[in-house]
């Protein structure tokens, strides 16, 4: 092996050309045809997926997106959630709205305010009731249309926090079925016949003080806001 063999560039071509030829093994065709016959194509069916050359460019964007999602769940940005009246339970809402109506009536009874306020409130009420009437007629919902307004067929029923089916007659229970209306007898708790005990029964009611205070404050603020607005908008006599 002479040193000069590798020093000349033209000899590189020569030595590469002179390299022994490597051929396929003898069973190459047999193996190939067997594969084709058995449809055993292995990985040949799967085309190599062409990876985008620019996929690495999107890596920072992906990291930022993931970080934002994580931060969104870790930190609660909405610290003070405004209370939505429509989200309240029906009982509380009914109480609130009845309170508002009372306040409005009280405000309207104010001399000097009533004329203008009645006009405005009446206008808006009329338009709302007309809209409702139209909707009910379209939808086929039962309701009595009278004059310009509508009276609901099903008035709001207050849901009581106990069930009549589960109730027991306490007087009967305590006297073990031998209840009498005699005054010298054992006192009646609930009452029977013409005798009225004046006792309304047991009812455990959970009073959420905080909620009640919040509602009271809200009602007061609404009342004063309404009062102020009516006072401001009323024509000066």
């Amino acid at each position: 092996m002479g040193k000069e063999l590798y020093n000349n560039k033209s000899s590189i071509e020569k030595i590469l050309g002179d390299l022994p030829k490597i051929g396929a093994p003898d069973n190459f065709e047999l193996n190939l045809m067997t594969k084709i016959k058995n449809e055993n194509f292995g990985n040949s069916l799967n085309e190599p997926t062409a990876k985008s050359k620019f996929s690495w460019i999107f890596a920072p964007a992906a990291v930022v997106a993931v970080s934002v999602v994580i931060l969104f769940f870790v930190f609660d940005f909405q610290t003070a959630e405004p209370e939505n009246l429509l989200m309240l339970d029906p009982e509380t809402r009914a109480e609130l709205t009845s309170g508002l109506e009372k306040n409005r009536d009280r405000a309207l009874s104010n001399p000097g305010v009533s004329d203008y306020a009645e006009k405005e409130v009446g206008k808006s009420e009329r338009s709302i009731s007309e809209k409702k009437a139209k909707e009910n007629v379209k939808g086929g919902i039962g309701g009595n249309i009278s004059g310009g307004g509508i009276t609901s067929a099903k008035p709001y029923k207050k849901v009581l926090p106990y069930n009549d089916k589960d109730a027991i007659d306490l007087d009967n229970y305590l006297t073990e079925g031998s209840r009498s209306n005699a005054a010298n007898n054992r006192a009646l708790i609930v009452g029977g016949g013409n005798y009225n005990s004046g006792f309304d029964g047991f009812m455990v009611q959970k009073n959420d003080v905080q909620l009640l205070e919040a509602l009271k404050a809200k009602m007061d603020s609404l009342y004063y806001a309404l009062k102020d607005s009516l006072n401001n908008s009323a024509p000066n006599n």
């Binding site: 396929a24 093994p25 190459f28 193996n31 190939l32 594969k35 084709i36 194509f41 292995g42 990985n43 040949s44 069916l45």
Partner: peptide, 13 residues
């Protein structure tokens, strides 16, 4: 050899 086999299969398919 495996690569040439795969080449021939690709050619066939």
């Amino acid at each position: 050899t495996d690569i040439v086999q795969d080449t021939m299969i690709k050619f066939y398919l």
